[in-house]
Design a protein around this nucleic acid. Sequence first.
DNA 1: AATCGTTATCGAAGCGCTTCGACAACCTAT
DNA 2: ATAGGTTGTCGAAGCGCTTCGATAACGATT
Lengths: 337, 337
Amino acid sequence: MVTLAEVAQHAGVSASTVSYVLSGKRSISANTRQRVERSIRELGYHPNAGARALASSKSNIIALMVPLRTDMYVPVMMEIAIAVATSARAHGYDVLLLTGEEGPDAVRRVAGSGLADGMILMDVELDDERLPLLRATDQPSVLIGLPADTSGLTCVDLDFRATGALCVEHLAKQGHQDIAVIGEAPAVYERHTGFAERTLDGLRTRARELGVRLLHRPCEGGYDAMAVTLARILDERPGTSGLIVQNESVVEPLLALLRQQGRAVPEDVSVVAICPDQVATQASVRLTSVAIPAQEMGRRAVEHLVAKLDGRGSDEVVLLAPELTVRGSTGPAPSRS
Amino acid sequence: MVTLAEVAQHAGVSASTVSYVLSGKRSISANTRQRVERSIRELGYHPNAGARALASSKSNIIALMVPLRTDMYVPVMMEIAIAVATSARAHGYDVLLLTGEEGPDAVRRVAGSGLADGMILMDVELDDERLPLLRATDQPSVLIGLPADTSGLTCVDLDFRATGALCVEHLAKQGHQDIAVIGEAPAVYERHTGFAERTLDGLRTRARELGVRLLHRPCEGGYDAMAVTLARILDERPGTSGLIVQNESVVEPLLALLRQQGRAVPEDVSVVAICPDQVATQASVRLTSVAIPAQEMGRRAVEHLVAKLDGRGSDEVVLLAPELTVRGSTGPAPSRS
DNA sequence: AATCGTTATCGAAGCGCTTCGACAACCTAT
DNA sequence: ATAGGTTGTCGAAGCGCTTCGATAACGATT
């Protein structure tokens, strides 16, 4: 393994000079710089990460805590994770992957050992047990998701309240009076995951304001659960003409069921999905949808964290504005007979 | 930040003694050990990762390279990644998440900087450009997937050849004579991803041996692509009564299309899927399937890597035996009229 | 009583890097 | 010409840990 000292010797300069060439923290003559850079290339030098971390008390690593649970829509998680890894690299950081498994201890371990300079937490719950620790250790961090109390924290998330409102608005504008919401699995609500509750809040508030009737039903993933849920909805509110789906794993089953029952989309029923664009465009009907901007969320989280690590940036709640894309699954409400 | 020296002072021993308590590399009297452990607890000491890595030239980190591409089925990737992270922790390692983006350079960087002690590569292509480097740097590593030349490498993968054979066998045994394979997206084959080609090989070989006709068609994800592909298949081989699907994103569209065309599963058409169990059980028809053992693959990869890092273990190709679970989507071939 | 082997502990060196202060060498202004 | 500033380089200290002798204390062995 090539060391700084070897590079220095090869280039005929002192070790500190090489270090300054690398970091750019002091001015170096063009001549020297070139000699050093040449030696680095010729010897194939890579700074030793451990030594660097020890001397500078900076690891250049960002920890990313992903949930262990898989009742969430996994591709979104993955997309965020990859976006985080990619943007982190662009800022000179590597990413350490932590699973929720360790729970709050992971925060303690990472903060205590200097393994990472900061952390990004995904799938934050309203009353997340990791938050007190985060505040106590004042570990630089960014949350993806919104807890109940955001004081002293930086959070990035889609504005789910606005998302809910947007969906209702779109349907109401088309004349739909009876709207049903097919939500996440009951467990998601029971766990008080912020995004689900905020969506619901946005949906209900706007529905009340616009005077449309709204029925919300959680739904497990899979075809059978969807069949049961849909039957219940149509039983309870036969006049339902607008559906809002916030559970990706149920989108295709829903469309299949509607087709099977002879309900045409969008002639008889309009469907709005809250899901990644890929799901919306690949479904058997092009779905009008509000996208979940996974990449954007990952990128923004990294940017805010890096800003904090650089001493810039402050606590802040960043809510990304939802965008509704009209595709083929929504249209005017059928005239009541 | 608490240091070893502070713990030593607090416990009234030397720094090296504390170190030996931590590592267990020399015998320590019960009395001293307890005093030290108590001090560690009271002070909330966490060894500094950088210093440890520098002194011991071991980072206790495993690098995991995940593909950047997302034309593969993402949940499987995620499941493997999480399994890797979880088992790594169980062995005292953390996981560094690298995206394919950097390509071969990542191997050089990680090997050169001592950032990680070893690496796990996912989504290995038949002629992967990272392999020469891996061999050259003799970086301890494990591949998930099988390249063309496995000499000097440790690989873990599902035995896709056997998987293909198993699917054909199952259908042939039920009397199906004309079988069609709905494969991954064309890009996957063009990239010479090992698993796709090996599956195909297994399918074809066994089909020849059993004397059944086999038609293979790649298929992009999504409903429309599936519709086109299915139409072509039925046009070319109207007698097709068995379908084998190796592209998870097309499973539900396929079932919807069959339903729509009045072809009953499994009465008219039998369907075997190669997919995670979750997909098979959540589909609108319980699918007979060969599972992709994502967790198992991640776990085994870590175990082999850790064995290598401990100086045990050797180069080896581990092929996990496929298991076919019969559910409701396969049955006897309809009698030819 | 002298010797040997254990067992438990300590001190010091060193891992490869960053960073601070020092110091030449040079370039301005007076 | 001289004081004062820049600019470019070096040496040394030190980051927190591991690890290698060395040593002291103590039984067990002759």
